[in-house]
Design a protein around this nucleic acid. Structure first.
Length: 660
RNA sequence: GCCUGGGUAGCUCAGUCGGUAGAGCAACGCAUUCGUAAUGCGUAGGUCAGGAGUUCGAAUCUCCUCUCAGGCUCCA
């Protein structure tokens, strides 16, 4: 028997006897590795440990504490979930069960149309732990398509997957089988066989650090028109500590939920009397929003924008010309019908209105680019199940602008616009971005192929030269044009879609907008739609979550609260507050009717950047005690002028007390 | 829109087997005057989301509607 030689990731080589598997390799390297090993990567292909190696192969062993390892154990956990469900509900049909970020899920169709309830999760969890204890090996088998179809004769979803792969293999389908001509399965006991490409952990005993999290409905193959299956979600990790850390992180995320902080900090609410997805801003949230908007306005003035205002409703005609009634009607509120039979719609977008402003008179090429800006409130009829705090609403205000320019100007205009966007977002404290390019939505778009190609190529060129990571969102554009969207990463690593920049050849055409060029001829302008916050409400929600409610000083509704130690100090406290207010600082005063500790506690819970405490010493020497947010170590004896200078410079630089 | 689970005082929540409503915080009043995260006592506050039904009797059981959360689909 001849030997084979394999290459390890560190560049070294190992000699093994012919027919040796990845597990044999791991064993040869060390018993610890053999014990930990879950799978292997052979020449870039993720595969089972049982896979025989061949001469010259590059092999790495996959262990639990790696992304690949976690993916394998999550995928295997999904199989155990399915096995547990088929034990508890004999006759259950199982559909697909992949690994996802942080966990896994599996979709089921229970006999008699039964649905899982939350209580079932506990039973399933117990059954899964029993299976783990049974230490069942995952055994791979391969069948012909015919045999595969016979094997899964009583599993209609599996049959559908096999047939779909035969007909037209999508990457999603291929995840479930080996290749279009070979049906691969894994069984971890004779009683449970699943269609799967693999690989899997050697046996169920490698699993166990999991938690089933929720049950949800999910459409078969993600299609609203197909039957809805019962999905169970779980999370799984390589160790109890990693699982606990993940659960802890979820709790942390919950603490910064803007809906919760909006309530706790008295910023805004969603009165049920008004309706779903329609929020109101309380004075503190209103202050925060006003500051956000004012700063944006100032930047837009500097950026050459002109400010316009337009109504919230319009005759149907306008949206017929724009194409919204043809392409966007299901996102619009139903019309109001007036006595004379005229239909009026609430506006879901501002662009047609701005186009009419453009068209209000003859335009010259000398006016272009013409940049029209509006904090425009729009209303969209979102499906009832999708509204979510201020991140998905039915009424919102966009920091919307439409730029009319010539075809020659558009590339430069988009380039400088992208810089403007990123610069502005950084001023609000977001620093990590990537871009997404959304292309023509198939079957839902107006305009010629050439126009779409030119617009998409222009955006791609600008996005590519921005030096940021660029991802492609195939078919995600608006009906009138492709778009670049700016995705920002927040403090706990989540990404949020914020700004969108859309290039539109269609609207000017539909409205017959034109300008007179230097050649004294009529030309059609190009239109750029752009919103930097996206919606003001949502941007505020993102910032609140990013900062966990600890807003930088310039955005805090109350920047300083002054407390007298006892009521003999209230006059001095008032003077301090007045002096700061003269400088434009938002200052609150909490008089000494309660113990100092209680007032400090309340101010801390309100996340006010600076608590100023004044007592006898301060009255005597004209100083302050400063208790900054994020610190439990107050500074004593600071002069008013020193504090004022520090505070004003922090506000001007958009800083926070935490980072000083 | 669909699936699962919720809705009890301003907020967070308890309420057993169907027997007529409870706490903490907040609010209000009185007292307390205090140097860095909760002073004490008292008062008031509820058509138990809304409607219908079952029952001698419903926060509790059934149905419908509204609404919230987590998913799916869709999306800024």
């Amino acid at each position: 028997m001849s030997d084979i030689e394999v290459l390890l990731p560190d560049g070294s080589t190992r000699t093994l006897s012919d027919g040796a598997t990845a597990l044999d390799l791991a064993t040869q390297i060390g018993p610890r590795l053999a014990k930990d090993a879950l799978a292997a990567v052979v020449d870039g292909e993720l595969t089972d440990l049982e896979t025989p190696l061949f001469n010259g192969a590059t092999v790495s062993i996959v262990t639990p504490k790696s992304d690949l390892g976690r993916e394998v154990l999550r995928h295997s956990s999904a199989h155990v979930l399915a096995q547990a469900v088929t034990r508890l509900w004999p006759g259950a049909k199982y559909a697909i069960g992949p690994a996802i970020d942080d966990g896994f899920y599996y979709d089921f169709d229970l006999p008699g149309g039964v649905h899982f309830s939350d209580d079932d999760l506990e039973r399933i969890d117990e059954e899964m732990r029993a299976i783990v204890k049974e230490d069942q090996p995952f055994i791979r088998s391969e069948y012909s398509v015919v045999d595969g179809l016979a094997l899964f004769a009583d599993q209609p979803y599996k049959v559908e997957i096999i047939n779909a792969v035969l007909a037209n293999a999508t990457p999603e389908d291929l995840a479930e089988v080996a290749s279009p001509s070979v049906v691969s399965t894994y069984s971890n006991s004779p009683a449970f066989v699943d269609l799967c490409r693999g690989p899997h952990v050697p046996s169920t005993s490698h699993l166990g650090h999991f938690k089933l999290t929720r049950v949800a409905g999910a459409y078969w193959r993600g299609d609203e028109k197909r039957p809805q299956l019962q999905r169970i979600y779980g999370t799984a990790w390589e160790s109890e500590e990693a699982l606990a850390a993940h659960l802890h992180q979820l709790e942390e995320a919950e603490l910064r939920d803007h809906r919760r902080l909006g309530q706790e900090l008295d910023l805004f609410s969603f009165p049920t009397e008004i309706g779903p997805g329609l929020g109101v801003f309380h004075p503190k949230g209103g202050t925060m929003r006003r500051i956000m908007e004012d700063y944006s306005r100032a930047r837009h003035v500097a950026g050459g924008y002109e400010f316009v205002y337009t109504p919230h409703i319009t005759k149907a005609d306008l949206f017929e010309v724009s194409g919204h009634l043809e392409w966007f009607a299901e996102g619009m509120y139903p019309p109001m019908e007036l006595d004379d039979g005229q239909k009026y719609y609430l506006k879901p977008m501002n662009c047609p209105f701005h186009t009419l402003i453009y068209k209000a008179r003859q335009r010259s090429y000398r006016e272009l680019p013409l940049r029209l800006f509006e904090f425009g409130s729009v209303y969209r009829y979102e499906k009832s199940g999708v509204v979510h705090g201020f991140t998905r609403v039915r009424g919102m205000t966009m920091d919307d602008a439409h730029i009319f320019c010539t075809r020659e100007q558009m590339t430069d205009e988009i380039k400088s616009l992208l810089e403007f966007v990123l610069d502005l977002l950084r001023d609000y404290g977001l620093t990590e971005f990537h871009l997404e390019l959304s292309t023509r939505p198939p079957g839902k778009a107006v305009g010629t192929d050439e126009e779409w190609e030119e617009a998409t190529a222009t955006l791609a060129q600008v996005a590519g030269s921005a030096g940021l990571q660029l991802t492609l969102d195939e078919g995600g554009g608006a009906f009138y044009g492709p778009k670049i969207s700016v995705q920002a990463k927040d403090a706990i690593g989540r990404t949020h879609q914020l700004s969108t920049i859309q290039l539109d050849f269609q609207t000017p055409q539909r409205f017959e907008a034109s300008y007179i060029g230097a050649d004294n001829a009529r030309h059609q302008p190009i239109m750029i739609h752009r919103a930097l916050f996206g919606s003001v409400e949502r941007f505020m929600a993102v910032l609140i979550e990013h900062y966990a409610g600890n807003m930088p000083t310039w955005l805090s509704p109350e920047q300083v609260r002054v407390l007298g130690v006892k009521d003999a100090h209230d006059d001095y406290a008032f003077d301090v507050a007045s002096a700061l207010r003269l400088e434009g600082v938002r200052v609150g005063l909490d008089e000494a009717s309660e113990p100092l500790g209680a007032r400090i506690r309340r101010a801390k819970l309100e996340k006010i950047p600076y608590i100023v405490v004044v007592g006898d010493d301060d009255v005597r020497s004209g100083t302050l005690g400063i208790n900054a947010r994020g610190s439990n170590d107050p500074e004593r004896g600071v002069t008013l002028s020193e504090f004022r200078d520090r505070l004003l410079s922090e506000i001007a630089s958009h800083g926070s007390p935490e980072v000083n």
